[in-house]
C-alpha cells in the first residue's frame, strides 16, 4: 500500500572489489515510518551495501559499482549515481553511522557542531540549539552537558556510538543507514538504542544491520536476508509476527 512512496529505491545494484563480485543484483526499498533490518553472515556484504547506497564505497579505488539508487525526497527525486546534485548533499541526506564508533578527534560539541556548520552552513546560536537537540535525541545530553568541550574519545564505546548517531541526525537526513548500532553496547544501552530506533523511524526511513536475531524481532518492520552478496529472502510484518516461523526461515536462508 505504501509501495508508491518509497523513500529510497535500490535497483539492480552490483558491486565489485577488484575482480571479486561482492554484491549481485540487489533490489531494496525503504519506506517512511518503517525500519528495515538487514541480516546475513559476516562478510556477506552488508556494510558494502550500506556504503554503496550513499556512494561511500567510492573512496576505495578498487571498488566498481553498477545499478541504480534513487532517493525520493518531498520535493525532488535524486538519482544517487547519476545526479547533478553535489555528492556532499547526497551524503548528508543519506546519513550513515559506521559499524565501529568513529568519533572525530575533537571535543564532543565540535563533533556535532562542525558538520552542521560546514555542510548545513548554520551559524551562531542555531548551532548550539541543533547540537543540544541532536544529543537529546540519542539521550546523551544529560550525560555530557557538563563536559561538552572534553575530547570525544573520553566517552565510553556506547556513548561514542550514540554521539555518532547524534552527529548524523543533526544533519537532517532523509534516510538513516546504521551499521550494527548496538554492536559495542551492553544489553541495557542496546535496549535504549532500540527504543530510540522505534521513535526515529516515525521520521526517517531506516536501514539497520544487525547480528542479533532477538533484536531483529524486536525492532524490525521488515527483514532482508543477504547471503554471499545476494538478497535471498525478504520478510514483512506478517511473517515477523510469528517468531517460530521467523527462526525457521532464518535456518533455511541464513
Amino acid at each position: 500500500m505504501n509501495s508508491l512512496s518509497s523513500v529510497l529505491e535500490v535497483t539492480n545494484l552490483s558491486v565489485w572489489f577488484s575482480e571479486r563480485q561482492v554484491l549481485s543484483d540487489i533490489h531494496l526499498s525503504l519506506f517512511p515510518g518503517e525500519l528495515t533490518v538487514l541480516i546475513g553472515h559476516s562478510g556477506s556484504g552488508k556494510s558494502t551495501l550500506l556504503q554503496s547506497i550513499n556512494r561511500l564505497n567510492e573512496i576505495f579505488p578498487v571498488c566498481r559499482t553498477q545499478g541504480e539508487v534513487q532517493l525520493c525526497t518531498e520535493r525532488k527525486k535524486i538519482r544517487v549515481y547519476q545526479s547533478d546534485v553535489p555528492l556532499s548533499e547526497i551524503r548528508r541526506r543519506i546519513g550513515m553511522v559506521f559499524q565501529t564508533p568513529a568519533v572525530l578527534p575533537f571535543s564532543i560539541f565540535r563533533n556535532v557542531a562542525m558538520p552542521v556548520r560546514i555542510t548545513l552552513g548554520y551559524r551562531g546560536n542555531v548551532i548550539n540549539e541543533r547540537v543540544e537537540w541532536a544529543l537529546r535525541q540519542v539521550s546523551l545530553w544529560d550525560e555530557v552537558k557538563d563536559r561538552l568541550h572534553k575530547n570525544a574519545s573520553t566517552l565510553s564505546g556506547g556513548q561514542q556510538q550514540r554521539l555518532c548517531l547524534a552527529r548524523t541526525l543533526a544533519l537532517e537526513p532523509d534516510v538513516l543507514l546504521l551499521d550494527e548500532p548496538t554492536a559495542s553496547l551492553d544489553f541495557k544501552s542496546a535496549r535504549k538504542i532500540e527504543a530510540l530506533l522505534g521513535e526515529l523511524k516515525t521520521r526517517y526511513a531506516i536501514l539497520v544491520v544487525s547480528h542479533s536475531l532477538g533484536q531483529t524481532l524486536r525492532v524490525a518492520d521488515r527483514v532482508c536476508v543477504i547471503r554471499d552478496g545476494r538478497m535471498v529472502r525478504e520478510m514483512g510484518k506478517q511473517e515477523l509476527r510469528n517468531p517460530a516461523e521467523f527462526y525457521r526461515v532464518i535456518e533455511t536462508y541464513f
Binding site: 561511500l56 558538520p115 560546514i118 555542510t119 548524523t168 544533519l171
Partner: peptide, 12 residues
C-alpha cells in the same frame, strides 16, 4: 578512518 567519516558527513 577520518576520511571515511568526514566523507559520510558530506564534507568536500
Amino acid at each position: 578512518s577520518l576520511r571515511a567519516v568526514s566523507e559520510s558527513l558530506g564534507l568536500t
